[in-house]
Structure formats: structure tokens, C-alpha cells
Design a binder for these strands. Sequence first.
RNA 1: GGCGACGUGGCCAAGUGGUAAGGCAGAGGCCUGCAAAGCCUUUAUCUCCGGUUCGAAUCCGGACGUCGCCUCCA
Length: 490
Amino acid sequence: MLVYNSQNHRKQELETIEPDKVRMYVCGPTVYDQIHIGNARTFLSFDVIRRYLMYKGYEVTFAQNLTDVDDKIINRANEEGRSAAEVAEEYSAAFIEQMHRFGILDPDIRPRATREIEAMQEMIALLVERGHAYATDSGDVYFSVRSDHNYGVLSGRELDQLRAGERVEVNEEKRDPFDFALWKAAKPGEPSWPSAWGEGRPGWHTECCAMIHRYLGTPIDIHGGGQDLVFPHHENETAQAMCAWGTALANTWMHTGMLRVNGDKMSKSLGNFFTLQEILDRYPADAVRLLMLQTHYRSSLDFQTDQLDGAVGTLERLRTCVKNLRWAAEHAAAGDGALSEADRALSAAASDAQASFVRQMDDDFNTAGGLAAIFELVTVANRYLDEVGGRTATAVTLRAADTLVELAEVLGLTLEASASELPDELVELAHEHAGYEGTSPDAAAEALLAARQQARANKDWGTADAIRDALTALGLVLEDTAAGARLRRA
RNA sequence: GGCGACGUGGCCAAGUGGUAAGGCAGAGGCCUGCAAAGCCUUUAUCUCCGGUUCGAAUCCGGACGUCGCCUCCA
């Protein structure tokens, strides 16, 4: 399978360090606020990438950090008059909760910066020892970009070019304006840890690097993040790894495209800033997922809320198709076992969908193409149900349903909810309309459907519609199919 | 100023050399007592110009336009 490596701008055959194993790391959030849908898009992309690698049979070890000590956290804590640890804890929990809501699989390893101080200090000490970092009188430790002749390899930048149009941060202690902090001396009241360079805390670029080294070993197969992290974050990470351990940090760098909202860059000043929580409060997680996956992960994604309304219906179409297939298989008239031409066509379509899905996803995780493969099977399946009526071939029909469910699952989309129970109100309703005397909602439903069928047979449309309207009021949809009437949740 | 991405039907979006996937929305039709679900039909030569080629949305050059990064933003 081909994977685009943003370090050399090429799609390359994925060759893992260990056979059939993938070690991957994706930069997690700085936990100072609710994450927004731009963050969510990145995490979703890597969730699907991970799921697909597993689907292909790789044993994936996935690590993602929580940056729980940082300027932004400290600022927020100061504004709110509480400790940085409290702020970090609140938003760490919120992040994990929202990831669960969004259907993102938990990482195998979720290190937190504040618990990895020792590993970071070891790395910093090594960099100082090798002449790639230096401590200042203030107690900061900086990485010396000029000491690394490879600096810029990831982002394709050169220090001197950067300098041309760049305003320079005034800091007389730095040897070069682009030197970045590995360790920051603590100011009063800030969280800090003792070190050889005095009380302080780690710099952002240092965290990921040290955690990767400790938990996954370097190099890893895939390192991911948003495109905006290429420079300076990932550039700095790879520079540290190379200088500290003499190894690349990652063989493949993957970066997701930025998300915009209704045509504009998402920003608080424009008022188009959405948190994941807000969106998931308004729309089903799978609809958001479906919409995002219709765009390739490397493209910028214009997030439009009116498209989201459409995605809700699209998702329903997928689920309805699976339900209809299952229903048809259950209610199929017994046949002689021979497959008709239509049966064989459906069977072939299921195979084709599977093959096409893999072909698309093998090409740098083309989820839009993968979805197209799924929809093509949906269309064929619906046509099949339309044509054969009640004479479906059970095995073939179930296989089509299974294929849809399986492929969608690779994308993290759930097409079949666990069977939900019918509401108790049906009993009362059945008593009223059908003279039902029992207590089982299921039996009540059957009685109601039977009563309505009788009314329809008598052309008593008023009664038939009254029953259907009452069911609708309970959130149930009644559908008349070739094989009889059926109930489903709205 | 430097680095990079992109410009495909009303909207979104796949597609990197052989005559344009898919989704949403719209229109017409079919099925239905009416619905629901679904089916069928219907809308593009790919920003523009030039070049390479038997042949380009796809390669090269140019123009116009949009966007991202270069500020510890996924």
C-alpha cells in the first residue's frame, strides 16, 4: 500500500520496520480548552488510518500524548485563579470524553508530559553533552539549530531563508533566533521540576520526542499531526532525535490538511469557531465522521453545516439499506436454493465493493474513494431488493449486508445499532386499537400491525392512518414492504 | 520576501496520460390507498493561454485566482 510521506512529498510503498507491525504516534492536544473540530479532523484521520492498517493485518501500536504543562495552560489557570494541574485535568478528561463520543479508538499508550519529565531531562542532557544544546544564565536550555546541519530537512526550509522575511524574537541569550527552548526556567508560581539546570519545565518540542523514544523507540514507522505542525514543531522534533540518538524520529511523516468553516479559516475573531462538543451536541457523531471522510485527509476541508444536514440523511441511507437487506433475508420465501441472475449480480457487487474499497484505501487512505465503493454496493443492493421482492437469496443478501457493515466499520462508521427495545407505550396503544390484553411490547407491536393490516384490507384508511400516526408519535416509523409491514426507529 | 498546497457539474468531492467515481441538493417519472423506504431518467470536457503526445483534468511553461505555513495553532 502507498502512503504519502510529507518529508519528501511522495507516495511510497509502506515498508514497516518490523514485519507486519506499525508503530505510530500522533501529537495530542495541549489541554487548556475544549478541542475544536479542526483538531477533531486530524484525530479522526489518524483513527481511520489506524483502523485500516489493522484491517490489513498490521499489529499497530498507537501512542498519543497529552501536553499537560504549557504556557497556555498556565495562562488559563492564572485567569481563572486555579492551578495549572486543575486546568489540565479538566480538559484532559474533556478531551478523552469527546474522543469517545466521536468514536475514536483509545491510543494504546497515552503518556502525559508531566509524568515524563525524567525522560525529557535525559534527552536534554544528551543534547547538551553532544554540543547541540546549551544552558543560559537564566536557567533555560536551548537547542542550537546551527549545530545541526540537517536542520530544515522535514519542512524544506533553510535557516537563512527563514531569516529573510522573519521578524526576530529579541532574546539576547539565544545564539540564533531560531534556537528553541528544550527547558524553561520556572517563574514564580509556575509548575516546575528540579533539574541540572535549575527549577523549570520542558519545552513543547521536547515532550513528543522523549515520549516517542521511551515508549516506541526510534525511529517509528509513522508520525502524524496537522499540517501546521510541520514547522516548527515537527522540524524541531526530528532535529532533536537526530542529534540526540543519531536516528531519524520517523520513517514516514503524515500531515492532515487544515479545516475551514463555511469558506473561512476557523478563528475565534470570525466567530466561526466550533468545538467538537458543540457539533456533537447537534449532530450524530457518525454523520460528522461521514462528512469529513468524504474529503481526502491531506486536502483542506471546508466544513459546512448545511452539508452536515445532508450527511445525516446519507448515513441513514446506509443504515436503512442494511436493515432492508436483513429484513428481506429474514422474510424471504423458501426457494430451491438455485441462484438467479440477480442473486449472482449482488454477490459479485459485494466482492467488487470489497476489492474497490481496498484498492482505494491502499492508495494513501483514500476514504472518499472507499466510501464510493460502499455506496455503489448500496445502490446495487437496493435495486436488487426492488427487483426480487420477497424472493431474495438469504445467503447472498446477508453477505451484502455483512460487507457493508464491515467496510463501514473500517471507517469507524456503525451501521447497525444494538437492537433497541420497543417502548412500553405500545402495550397501551395496542389495547386501545387492537384489543390487546398482554404486557409485551413486541407482541403489542404485532397486534397493532395486524390490526392496521385488517383496516387496510377493509379500506378503512382512517383507522390505518390513526395507528401509523400513533406509532410515529412514539418515534417509530412504519413501512409497508413487499414482505409485509415493519417497524423501525426514526 | 521564503516554503508549500490547490482551482473538477448548483454545493461538496475522487480521479496524475486513453474520451470524467461517489455524496448532497434540484427536476421529471415509477412503486404506494396515502405515506415511508427504494428504483429509473436528467445536469461537466475539468480557471484561462501555450507546449509535449496518436491521445491530457492528469506532464511542462505562463497568466489569473484561492488557501496554508514561516508567531510553541491539529
